[in-house]
């Protein structure tokens, strides 16, 4: 499970209000949400992002509200993965539950600049910065979460056990 894309890099504490502002929460439709993703922090994001691209953030990515619209919006823009130093806990759950791949790796975040070409391997947790020719290893997921990810979300995982 490898993926390659260009990086959009942001700072610490990227909150759910900038990922998808509340004024657009009047629709749960992923395509609709994707149109406004990151708008309040980077107006150009939705025009520039291409399928497979990667978002990189600092500490506490996704802090704030519990809106699952945030990982849903990111995924619907075509972003393949979010790499951050740490994730806010509700965003972390929501990403796993909705099947948005995320990776925690402070070293990679420090070593990746905006616009770099990066390849990630979700299976092994390897992050390869092609532009700079550097490699990083993300924390592996606990087995239980890996099962949810492999089932492509919590709902499918539960269906199997009901």
């Amino acid at each position: 499970m490898k993926n390659r894309g260009r990086v959009f890099k942001y700072g610490d504490n990227v909150d759910t209000d900038v990922i998808i502002p509340a004024r657009y929460l009047n629709s749960p439709d992923p395509e609709e949400l994707a149109k406004y993703c990151m708008r309040d922090i980077d107006e150009d994001f939705v025009n520039k992002v291409k399928s497979g691209d990667i978002i990189v953030g600092g500490y506490n990515f996704g802090c704030g509200s519990s809106r699952e619209h945030a990982p849903i919006a990111i995924r619907a823009t075509g972003v393949s993965c979010v790499i951050a130093k740490t994730f806010a806990r509700i965003f972390y759950r929501n990403a796993i539950n909705t099947g948005l791949p995320i990776m925690e790796c402070p070293e990679a975040v420090d070593g990746i600049d905006n616009g770099d070409e990066v390849e990630v391997d979700f299976k092994t947790g390897e992050i390869f910065n092609i532009t700079k020719n550097t490699k990083y290893q993300a924390q592996p997921f606990p087995k239980f979460m890996e099962e949810i990810i492999l089932a492509e979300g919590l709902v499918n995982h539960i269906k199997k056990s009901i």
Partner: peptide, 17 residues
Amino acid sequence: GIGSTDMAAGMATGKCW
């Protein structure tokens, strides 16, 4: 706080991880 998928799972099973 949890997300909507956790809410759905909670409503269905009465459990949460």
